[in-house]
């Protein structure tokens, strides 16, 4: 199925210029070889190709060392591929159109929550009043308006990730790249933030790429799940979740169709690890 399972189109507000369109991307034959430090080449990714339609939510899962983070970093422009290309709407990576979320919140401890969220605008040279107004809007959307003047160290881990998410989204990115953003959080906080992320995605016209090591999180959030196998990192399965987003509440995880998707991903993961062990 090609169409995303969106239940409603985003609440596009046209007050600040035209609505940015989500980015579609084509990853073609990506390879990445590292030097292991002892002069031996290590192949982190081999011939990875996939295309993502604009506005979709794609999750990448795989065991640690399968290159999923490397793939995301190459797409995000944080690392260079040693082979292959990535095209964004058929062209090079557009400036300022990407938002990033990382495993750690990466907040500046000396800045208030508001000024952390306003940072991307500040570095882009936007005037103070405007950037802080926009950051405040964003904080309201993630339910943190009351903490605007707090310093990050006074917040819980979940709230810090929420701030990081707000900073990633404040520039209205057309492509959001998330590298295990909630991996360090407890289960309840994590589900909470997953729901939040879904809500924000449904409201915003953007494509999301999410790397996670949790099968359940991948299937709970994504339209489509890409499974990677290790040594060398490559795609071993790629399937549509086919559960409507408005049907995805925490309860969905016990339903047969959800369990079935989890089983498919788990099978692919195991196969990948087994093949890697044999190859060794």
């Amino acid at each position: 199925m090609a169409a995303p399972h969106r239940t409603h189109e985003g609440t596009h507000d046209g007050t600040r210029g035209g609505t940015p369109a989500p980015i579609g991307l084509v990853v073609d034959g990506i390879g990445r070889t590292f030097d292991d430090g002892a002069g031996q080449p290590v192949e982190a990714l081999r011939d990875v190709s996939l295309s993502v339609a604009p506005g979709r939510f794609v999750a990448f899962i795989g065991p640690s060392g399968c290159g999923k983070t490397t793939l995301l970093r190459i797409i995000g422009g944080l690392d260079r591929a040693t082979a292959g290309t990535v095209l964004f709407d058929g062209g090079p990576r557009p400036e300022g159109a990407l938002g990033y979320g990382f495993q750690d919140a990466r907040l500046l401890p000396w800045r208030s929550v508001l000024r952390n969220v306003a940072l991307p605008f500040e570095l882009a040279g936007m005037a103070r009043a405007e950037r802080e107004a926009r950051a405040m809007d964003m904080l309201e959307r993630v339910g943190l308006a009351d903490f605007a003047s707090a310093r990050p160290h006074t917040l819980s881990g979940g709230m810090r990730m929420r701030v990081a998410l707000a900073r990633a989204l404040v520039t209205r990115p057309r492509l959001l790249v998330l590298d295990e953003p909630f991996g360090a959080l407890d289960e309840i906080t994590r589900t909470d933030l997953d729901d939040e992320l879904r809500r924000l995605w449904l409201q915003t016209p953007m494509t999301v790429l999410l790397v996670t090591h949790s099968i359940s999180e991948a299937i709970y959030l994504a339209d489509r799940v890409v499974v990677l196998a290790p040594r060398p990192g490559r795609i071993i399965d790629d399937f549509e979740v086919e559960i409507a987003h408005d049907a995805r509440s925490p309860d969905v995880r016990t339903e047969p169709r959800f369990v079935d998707r989890v089983a498919r991903a788990a099978t692919a993961l195991e196969r990948g690890v087994r093949e890697a062990a044999v190859a060794r």
């Binding site: 995000g76 422009g77 944080l78 400036e95 300022g96 990407l98 990033y100 990382f102 750690d104 990466r106 500046l108 000396w110 940072l119 991307p120 500040e122 570095l123 882009a124």
Partner: peptide, 26 residues
């Protein structure tokens, strides 16, 4: 923190901005 440096690079910070807003406070 190299992660914070990466963040500044991502948002296209200039060298002087990086010094003033990241390195000096850190």
């Amino acid at each position: 923190d190299p992660n914070l440096r990466e963040l500044f690079a991502l948002y296209g910070a200039s060298r002087s901005e990086r010094w003033l807003k990241l390195e000096l406070p850190a």
